[in-house]
């Protein structure tokens, strides 16, 4: 048993369908402390949103099968009954969604929707909720909050809507904030503002943040730890610095190769990961990444196509684990991948 604030153990989320079981999350484990940020990275359909929604119990009432443990402050959220889980939502764990326009009800004012989050967990008057709403809108940087509180979502710009969503999520000072691609739907200039705001608020409220993204730039900026997910499994997990500098899993290499670098050499290639994400209904045998992996031939025998690799400590150490059969991934990365994606970096060292 760990003493982390949030501790997810062997989380499994399956969706039975008429075609079979969709294995959206398989045996996911991670820890997160207050004041720290975990970045969960992966392609669409890798299970990052599904596993995080499970923390809020958003799969309850559907046919999803969720098992494992989600310990928040020592309490297993999966053992709570529906009413206890409902009280926990928004109060202990809050969530910010990707598209703030569709995440807000078009027919109610921003203030009404934000105040609602406060009223549901606190026995206060509507007036008090409104005062708190204005205070929070001010805190997240909405100008003239006492007037904008009566606006409708469509009268807000995209960035302001996301600020309002953040205000809504922080109304009850939750210990854990899950941000599901909070900047994906926003302009690049606004993205940075929102990320800054999240960091400021994290320092102020000392909350734990899970930030779900496919943008490694966001991870580098925000996250203390990174969890790379592929086909419902964690394939690499460790401190952000470790993973960005010494990635040991070919999928992570692929993600890094796909990121454009504005300051870097224009000769550096953008190398997309070939192929498509696997079906979660029928994932490939062995390592789920093997059909798209360029380094399969470096593994002796047919290990990659038959045996699911375990999460094992990385060769470079540092509390960093990866799921790969390669015997010397650190060397492969240094000699084959790094020169391709950052030639200037390699030359600088030489």
């Amino acid at each position: 048993m760990t003493d982390s604030f949030l501790s997810v153990r062997d989380l499994v989320v399956h969706f039975p369908t008429t075609d079979g079981i969709v294995k959206a999350t398989e045996g996911l484990s991670y820890d997160l402390d207050r004041g720290k940020t975990l970045g969960i990275v992966g392609e669409s359909g890798s299970g990052k949103s599904v596993s995080s929604s499970a923390i809020l119990g958003l799969h309850r009432g559907t046919n999803a099968q969720v098992s494992g443990q989600i310990l928040l402050d020592g309490d297993d959220l999966l053992q709570l009954n529906d009413e206890q889980m409902r009280r926990c939502r928004g109060r202990d764990v809050a969530m910010i969604f990707q598209d703030p326009l569709s995440a807000m009800h078009p027919y109610y004012t921003v203030g009404n929707q934000i105040g609602e989050a406060y009223l549901v967990h606190n026995k206060v008057s509507k007036k008090a909720a409104r005062a708190r709403t204005i205070e929070m809108l001010d805190r997240v940087g909405i100008p003239q909050p006492d007037r904008r509180v009566d606006d409708y979502p469509h009268q807000f710009s995209g960035g302001m809507r996301q600020r309002a969503m953040i205000a809504m999520s922080l109304m009850n000072d939750p210990g854990l904030l899950i941000a599901d691609e909070p900047t994906t739907a926003l302009d690049v200039t606004v993205q940075a503002q929102i990320l800054d705001l999240l960091q400021d608020l994290q320092r102020e409220f000392n909350s734990a943040i899970i930030i779900i993204t496919h943008d490694l730039g966001v991870v580098a900026e925000m996250a203390d730890d990174v969890l790379v997910m592929y086909a419902g499994r964690a394939v690499e997990y460790g401190p952000t610095k470790e993973i960005l500098v010494h990635p040991e899993m070919p999928y992570t290499w692929g993600l890094l190769s796909s990121v454009p670098d504005v300051t870097g050499d224009t000769d550096a290639k953008l190398i997309p990961i070939r192929g498509n994400p696997p079906s979660l209904l029928n994932p490939p045998a062995g390592c789920a990444f093997n059909p798209r992996c360029d380094h399969r031939d470096k593994v002796p025998g047919d290990l990659c196509t038959t045996v699911v690799p375990e999460l094992t400590p990385a060769r470079t150490g540092g509390n960093h684990t990866k799921r790969c059969h390669l015997a010397n991934p650190d060397e492969v990365y240094a000699t084959e991948i790094l020169p391709e994606i950052a030639p200037d970096l390699v030359q600088g060292q030489a």
Partner: peptide, 11 residues
């Protein structure tokens, strides 16, 4: 999506 938000608020 806004119903998911409503649910996530704890309503």
């Amino acid at each position: 999506d806004y119903l998911r938000t409503a649910k996530a608020k704890g309503l």
